[in-house]
Write a protein that binds this DNA or RNA. Structure first.
Lengths: 197, 197
DNA sequence: ATTCACATGTAAAGGGTTACATGATTGG
DNA sequence: CCAATCATGTAACCCTTTACATGTGAAT
């Protein structure tokens, strides 16, 4: 009932999912994988504890659903204050989070490395981003096919649509940079042939 | 001396800095801001405790430098095993870290929001990324001017060069997406004029 | 018979952020 | 006189990850 609790970002992620459809903790763990998993992730155990916090804060409630063939589950749904909190949050300004990009950190020290190994690293990374990009484009094509009339900003589907676009933009950028990195190393190999021998 | 300790990513970030120049904790806190701060960040207090861990693991050593006018400082430098660990690490494959992007998470639930507020959010974000991009481009131009002979992959400067490129790619992507988002909302406003009144 | 899917949690540890404590010197 | 810079750390807290614990029913 007290809403003087701070809501974590995972809390908002769960509210956003429950806002679309009432779900159990297990459901949420599944739904968090895709498409939210592309930009926000959590472990099942964390989800359960966060749900307990959200309920204590009065943002969600649950009803226990007894099932004949499956274990009883808790179906969570948004309360009014939960919906209000979520609606307010989505347009609050995002203060730029301290970035943490391991690959870029490696690039900062890559001058110490064996160039061959460096090429391999960035080539692997390129393949990974290429695969991701293809996956996103495929999902995008599918949702565009099922919504021929167009997806507008007030439809829940717009969430999926927008996040997929975000993914495509960022994968393209990552791919472009990895390509540039490989190119730098290959250029070096051509200009300094057999330098090590 | 025991090197059965796990090195955290911050640990490697510090090793990468010390590899270029022996530094005190305070120096490292300053140097971590720019340009590493663009892709990896840490608080001073965390840096000091991490330095202690790295030293216990035998990856760095320090000598105390007594200064006439300033407090005594500990100047840290890489040990041989520290350099080896860093060199190995830079080319190890990066397993894709679980992503956490708050802005994209908001986009997932943005259909609940007032479209005007949504436009404002993404416009602010656009301005932010525009400023970042301009900053990176300026720094890049400066380092290109000071290294007219070219920057090759075995030079320490290549670290700065490569990370700046990474920043430019990713800011362009963020900017592009924010622009796309604003466009979606403006298109909606044109098609649904005065819907709310 | 065993694995997979459903279903819910507790406990511990790790890594990062924030707050706090201390103290000297230089510049405005 | 006060703020900023130099310089090092401790303690507490928060969020996240990993490991563990428990149990049923359906499918292979």
């Amino acid at each position: 009932m007290e809403d003087n609790h701070i809501i974590t970002t995972l809390g908002y992620a769960l509210l956003a999912l429950v806002a679309r459809q009432a779900s159990s903790g297990y459901d949420l763990a599944q739904r968090l994988k895709r498409p939210i998993g592309f930009f926000w992730s959590a472990n099942p155990s964390h989800i359960y504890s966060e749900l307990a916090r959200l309920e204590k804060a009065g943002l969600i409630t649950h009803q226990s659903i007894e099932q004949a063939t499956r274990p009883t589950k808790k179906l969570f749904s948004l309360t009014e204050s939960g919906q209000a909190a979520l609606r307010d949050w989505v347009t609050t300004s995002v203060e730029p989070a301290p970035p943490h990009d391991e690959l870029v950190l490696r690039a900062y020290a890559i001058w110490l490395a064996d160039p061959d190994k460096a090429i391999q690293l960035f080539q692997r990374q390129k393949e990974y981003h290429k695969a991701r990009l293809a996956e996103y484009r495929q999902i995008l094509a599918r949702i565009e096919r099922t919504h021929e009339a167009g997806i507008t900003v007030t439809m829940p589907e717009f969430g999926n649509y927008a996040t997929l676009h975000a993914g495509i933009y960022s994968e393209q950028a990552a791919l472009g940079w990895c390509h540039w990195m490989v190119d730098q190393f290959e250029r070096h190999a051509r200009q300094d042939p057999e330098q090590e021998k």
